[in-house]
Write a protein that binds this DNA or RNA. Structure first.
Length: 836
DNA sequence: ATAGGGTTAG
């Protein structure tokens, strides 16, 4: 029998008026059932109740409990409403412990209380709100009389535990049992629909809302906007939003969030602006969503204004808003600003730290990232999945297997390796550290493989040119019901390109289209780069044009890629046209484009034009210097190459191995012995760089070309590498020029012992003989090769010039370079015959 | 009722 006049948790929304409302109501208080009730008792009871109520209202829960204990010790009868009041206070304070004490007292007082509908409902609500999942559900299932409020409590609980399906099942069940959902449960149901993206169910709830007239409730309307937003149906979200008579800031925020989370960042920013125009004060939610949208668009001015609005509005930088600001600055590469915000934040949680760590990793500042991890530990915060995936990415990008293994071990110890994102990072780390075997092992031991995990391994095989293995994986993923997406296809294509199987790559490209998978910018760029690097320059340019015809706009990477195909005089006009396109689309000053342009003009022999682009490049980075230096080196202008190298040093940019190789080879080809040696010494003493075999090779060739054969040989002995075929070959080449026949024979013998099956060595030896006019030896070497069944590397064949046989990088006529070579020789008036 | 971080392809 219900004995308490109101049992509405809804009234909790009007907490401050509740007790007065009760005391002024005319409803009877049913404590006549207690013995010896008198007028006096009633007054005293009322004053106890009033005191407990006020204490509860002020959150003085312990004092309220003390009064309750006092009543109990005086054997003063306690009515259900007092327990209810204290329980409600426990709900507010999320005080599970005290609530449990009250529950115990209720049980102690016997069946009247324990089986009181009001108290039972309150207990369900109490346990539900305190997140005691099992207790709340058990009590609920044992309720004799369920009502809208207890249903609402368990549905809300299931929602908070992310059990959205269960929540909706309960929502349906309550209706089947004849209860009509009120406007307090509906938002929970809608939230579950949004989380599950169950648009149909959500629309059903919307229908119900309209039917019973809840659509005027801002809570319900905001939830509808959120639900449609989460389901990606922004048009319907907008309709609800536009139809609202009165909008509160949450409705505005839901609309902004909806657009932002669906990648419609411009519209999110638009709604934010409308909101300000209407004079609605943005909250932290509005600003953090606005900042996310700005970050996604790279909208630097908007985002900075958002930060300013937050500051001016006096909004405290809590974890979430602070993280959004940091995210904005770091996504725009403004890492110093992100650091400033981070330092000024008063509280920092694991997300804030993770953001800084991943920002550093993305900027390649591995040391700083690891230092952040260290500081984070000092603040007693534990690494989570996100921290580890950033650390593993750092290890992958710097090929640091030691850090990678440490990260992997940490994951195993802390059970993080079952997270698919972490698993993908581990697989990628091992692959990028050259341990494809470990990558495969981790992949196999991961139970829940998602498409990204499959794609990670696929990309790993592709990267090392194992197209066949990639293809196997591609079939296997389909057998395991993971349909490949465009990224999978891209890796598959890349796998064959890396193995120089261009026809297979092109075949896959058309296959994917006939299967209805649309190539994206990356697919096209992969193909363009592959064609350009394998001698199919013209086709690369054609593919670039086809890409534009298919409506895909090139970005800086695809432009750089196609420019790398325009490196001969025939394709230069295309290159110039693309240069124009880049300028028209404001991409001409992008560093990667400038670099490609410098490279293109330099390779085509237009050095002054290359220099012009180089000089007009504002913030120069190492690659553009390297392109310029190698351009001069290629055309024998060692002096100019050295000048650019000096410029680079003055700019305070640290050269890399490629810089040294180009500048050393320029010196070597032009006999600039002093300059070359000086640079070689600088590599070690000034740049603290370990010279590679290539660097030694350049100096060996520099020394031997200038006649210092003894010095060259001494250097070979002194270097910390076993001499490779290239270095011996370069020495061999100069032996003939200096008539060092005996040394040459020695080197040739060494070369064949070193790699008896490398056809390149036979070519080098034969070239050396050709240089000294020993055509008989050239023929002998060719016969030796035939005897051993060795084939020349693709693109190299014997060319007969007059009576003389030369090994030549000319091919059998099918190689794309053939045409070029044909033209070059024709210019020299040389007629030629190719032989296989 | 609304808000923040990590993984794959050029």
């Amino acid at each position: 029998m219900a004995c308490f006049p109101f049992t509405t948790p809804q009234l909790s929304q009007f907490r401050s008026t509740k007790t007065t409302k009760f005391l002024s109501s005319n409803e009877p208080i049913h404590f006549t059932e207690f013995n010896g009730t008198t007028r006096n008792h009633q007054t005293l009871y009322k004053s106890y109740f009033h005191s407990i109520s006020s204490l509860c209202k002020d959150g003085q829960i312990q004092q309220a409990v003390d009064l309750l204990t006092e009543m109990d010790s005086k054997n003063f009868p306690v009515g259900p409403e007092i327990y209810g009041e204290i329980l409600q206070c426990c709900v507010y304070e999320r005080d599970l412990f005290t609530g449990q004490q009250i529950h115990a007292q209720v049980l102690k007082n016997g069946a009247f209380f324990a089986r009181n509908e009001y108290i039972e409902t309150k207990l369900v609500i109490f346990y539900a709100k305190c997140g005691a999942f099992d207790v709340a559900n058990n009590l609920f299932s044992r309720l004799r009389v369920k009502n809208v409020f207890s249903w609402a409590a368990v549905i809300g609980l299931k929602c908070r535990f992310g059990l959205n399906e269960e929540a909706l099942m309960a929502f349906s069940e309550m209706q089947e049992n004849g209860f009509f959902p009120d406007n307090f449960v509906v938002p929970n149901a809608l939230k579950a629909c949004g989380a599950l993206q169950w648009l149909g169910y959500g629309k059903g709830v919307h229908g119900y809302v309209v039917k019973v007239g809840f659509d005027g409730c801002v809570f319900v309307a905001s939830s509808l906007i959120d639900m449609y937003g989460k389901c990606g149906v922004l048009e319907d979200a907008r309709k609800v939003f536009d139809g609202m008579v009165e909008r509160n800031v949450i409705a505005w925020n839901s609309m902004i969030v909806g657009y932002m989370q669906n990648g419609r960042n411009e519209e999110a920013i638009g709604v934010f602006c409308d909101m300000r125009m209407e004079g609605v004060e943005p909250t932290r939610v509005s600003i953090s969503s606005f900042l996310s949208a700005s970050a996604n668009l790279g909208a630097i001015d908007e985002g900075k204004q958002g930060h300013a609005i937050a500051v001016l509005g006096g909004l405290e930088l809590d974890n979430i808003l602070g993280s959004s600001v940091i995210n904005f600055y770091s996504k725009l590469g403004l890492i110093e600003d992100a650091e400033l915000v981070f330092v000024r934040m008063l509280v920092r949680d694991v997300v804030t730290w993770n953001l800084m760590i991943s920002s550093y990793v993305q900027c390649g500042l591995i040391e700083k990232a690891l230092n952040m991890c260290h500081l984070m530990r000092l603040e007693n915060l534990r690494f989570d999945c996100v921290t580890l995936s950033s650390i593993l990415t750092a290890a992958a990008n710097s090929s640091s297997i030691e850090i990678g293994k440490e990260g992997h071990c940490y994951c195993i110890r802390n059970n993080l390796q079952s997270d698919v994102v972490v698993a993908s990072s581990i697989v990628d780390m091992y692959a990028k550290c050259g341990r494809i075997d470990c990558a495969r092992q981790v992949f196999s031991s991961t139970t829940n493989k998602d498409i990204i995990l499959w794609n990670t391994l696929l990309a790993s095989y592709a990267d090392i040119g194992h197209g066949g293995e990639a293809l196997k994986l591609f079939y296997q993923m389909q057998l395991e019901s993971v349909p490949p997406n465009v990224t999978s296809w891209n890796s598959l294509i890349l796998g064959f390109i890396r193995n120089h199987q261009l026809n297979e790559a092109k075949e896959l490209f058309s296959q994917m289209q006939s299967l209805g998978v649309h190539p994206n910018l990356i697919t096209w760029t992969t193909l363009i780069t592959g064609l350009a690097h394998n001698g199919f320059q013209d086709e690369a340019v054609q593919i670039f044009q086809k890409m534009q015809e298919s409506g895909i706009k090139p970005n800086t990477i695809s432009i750089s890629s196609v420019l790398s195909a325009c490196t001969n005089v025939t394709s230069l006009p295309h290159g110039r046209a693309i240069h124009g396109y880049a300028i028209r689309h404001d991409l001409g000053s992008q560093i990667s484009v400038s670099t490609a342009l410098v490279d293109m003009y330099a390779k085509c022999g237009y050095l002054s034009q290359a220099k012009r682009v180089f000089d007009n490049t504002l913030s120069k980075e190492l690659p553009v210097y390297n392109a310029m230096i190698s351009g001069y080196a290629l055309h024998g202008q060692a002096g100019e190459a050295l000048a650019v190298y000096k410029h680079l040093e003055e700019a305070g940019i640290e050269p890399d191995g490629i810089t040294f190789t180009t500048v050393l080879s320029a010196c070597s080809h032009n006999g600039l012995i002093n300059e070359g040696l000086e640079i070689f010494f600088d590599i070690v003493s000034k740049h603290h760089f370990r010279p590679s075999m290539e660097h030694y090779g350049c100096v060996v060739s520099l020394l031997s070309r200038s006649g210092n054969l003894d010095e060259a040989i001494r250097l070979i002995h002194a270097m910390p590498y076993e001499p490779d075929a290239y270095i011996i070959g370069s020495l061999l080449a100069t032996c003939r020029e200096h008539n060092e026949i005996e040394l040459g024979e020695h080197l040739a013998k060494y070369l064949l012992e070193l790699e008896p099956d490398n056809s390149g060595n036979y070519v080098a030896i034969s070239n050396a003989y050709a240089a000294s006019g020993r055509w008989d030896k050239v023929i002998k070497i060719r016969d030796l090769m035939k005897e051993k069944g060795l084939k020349k590397s693709p693109g190299c064949s014997w060319i007969q010039i007059g009576e003389k046989l030369h090994p030549f990088f000319a091919g059998d006529g099918s190689h794309p370079k053939t045409k070029q070579i044909h033209a070059t020789l024709a210019l020299l008036g040389i007629e030629m015959n190719f032989s296989a």
